[in-house]
Structures are given as C-alpha cells and as structure tokens.
C-alpha cells in the first residue's frame, strides 16, 4: 500500500448534538497511520467545529475541541472553511481557532493551516480529491 491518495474529510455537522463530528475526527486520527495526503473541509454547521473558546463544562460532554489544534501532527495539511457557511452564521475568520503545522523532517512550518475558501473553490477541492469522506 505505497500509493498515496488525496483524502478529503467533509464536515457538515455542529460539534455537539450528534456524534458525527467526533467520529469523523476519530477517522482522521486513525487514518494518519496510512500517510495519505489529507485535507479537511468545514461547511454548513460544520464551521462551528472550529469556533474557538467552546466550553462543555456544563453539558457533561467531553470537550474534543483541543484535538483540532493537534491535527497538524496527524498529517493534516489543509483545513478549509466555507466562507458562505461562516457568513450565514454570523461568524468570521477571527472566531476560528488557528492550527499550526510543522514537518519535523524538513523543518517546514506553517503558522495556520485553516483557510477560508469560496464555495466554488471548495467544490473544486472536493472534485480534485480521490476519496471524500462525508460526515
């Protein structure tokens, strides 16, 4: 299994309320072992997964938001966010977490792999992917 494919994880659900966001994240974490070219895209209510400052202390839910910040260490190279979905929910880039990425072999560093994209660009990115997981 040496062939590398372009993986895209499409996240369309709010982080809590259903388990899709968390179980999607579990696939990303496990999938890291397979060394594929991995991008995530957040659209519709999925953009709420990246809103900073979430607090689950009074809802008896495990707060898995810190996990998103570690995704660079799990081989994730891009985290795209649909601009129209953000705007429709009164959110902007300032509301989102930043996720840094560092290649320990080449020492290449990226300050933030979270990137806002237009819907047509999002569609193009999905079309270019060889595998699209939809959650």
């Amino acid at each position: 299994m040496s062939d590398i494919k372009k993986f895209m994880y499409l996240n369309r659900r709010a982080p809590y309320g259903t388990i899709y966001a968390w179980e999607s994240l579990e696939v990303v974490l496990i999938g890291a072992a397979f060394d594929q070219e991995v991008s995530l895209i957040f659209a519709d209510d999925g953009v709420f997964q990246l809103v900073k400052g979430s607090d689950t202390s009074e809802s008896d839910m495990k707060n898995f938001m810190p996990t998103y910040r570690t995704l660079g260490d799990y081989g994730v190279r891009h985290m795209y966010v649909d601009r129209a979905s953000l705007a429709a929910r009164g959110l902007s880039e300032d509301d989102l977490i930043e996720v840094a990425w560092e290649d320990y072999e080449t020492e290449e560093e990226v300050d933030n792999i979270v990137e806002i994209v237009d819907t047509d660009q999002a569609a193009k990115l999905m079309a270019e992917s060889e595998v699209v997981f939809s959650f």
Binding site: I30, Q36, F133
Partner: peptide, 11 residues
C-alpha cells in the same frame, strides 16, 4: 478498527 475503512478507501 477504523483502519479497515481507510484501507478500503485506498484499495
């Protein structure tokens, strides 16, 4: 495990 899903996607 979930690796079976990722492997299926690759294969």
């Amino acid at each position: 495990g979930l690796g079976q899903l990722v492997e299926a996607a690759i294969q």
